[in-house]
Amino acid sequence: MLQNAAQTYQSNQVTTANPADLTLMLYNGALKFIKQAKVALEEKDVIKSHEASLKVQNILYELISTLKSDYEISKEFAKLYEYMLQRTIEANMHKDVNILLEVEDLFIQFRDTWKEAMLLAKKQG
């Protein structure tokens, strides 16, 4: 019952969020799944690590697909997301925690910068 309530709340959060909030949710979700993948590797659970890595890859596919190509910066974001995707695939194939740490660091930078941009937009709006 509690699980259903949590799922309903999370679903409502996603369906009512604006694009900026959704992007932040994707960044946070990717960080959560990278952490799960790292823990699973430490516990030698390659299946759980694989599943978590696939979730990170899916988030990166979503981030890439939602970029607006009419903005020059979107091209730079696309390059970085594609790099992160390639590294996540490599980490999954080789079961390499160090590569996951690299991707995690990039996601943290994206998330923190995004949060700052959201705060600035609120102040200006």
Rank of each mutant, 00 (worst) to 15 (best):
D21C: 12
D21E: 15
D45F: 00
F33A: 10
D21G: 14
S53T: 01
A52R: 03
L63M: 12
E42S: 03
K32R: 13
A37M: 03
K44D: 13
N28W: 08
K55T: 04
Q36N: 11
D21F: 15
I34Y: 06
I47H: 01
A20Q: 15
N28C: 09
A52F: 00
I59D: 09
I59V: 15
L24R: 13
F33N: 14
A52N: 02
K32E: 11
V46K: 06
A30F: 06
I64Q: 12
I47Y: 06
I64K: 10
S49I: 00
H50A: 04
V46S: 08
A52Y: 00
K32I: 06
L26M: 13
A37K: 08
F33W: 10
I47M: 05
Y27E: 01
E51G: 00
N28E: 15
Y27L: 06
A30T: 01
Q36A: 13
L24T: 08
L60V: 08
Y27W: 05
A40S: 13
K32N: 07
A30N: 09
Q36P: 07
N58T: 04
F33M: 10
K44W: 07
L60H: 07
H50Q: 10
Q36T: 12
K44T: 11
A40V: 03
L26Y: 11
K48D: 05
L24I: 04
L31Y: 04
S53W: 02
S53K: 00
D45N: 07
L26P: 04
K44H: 11
F33T: 13
E51D: 06
L26R: 11
K48N: 03
S53P: 02
D21Y: 15
A37R: 02
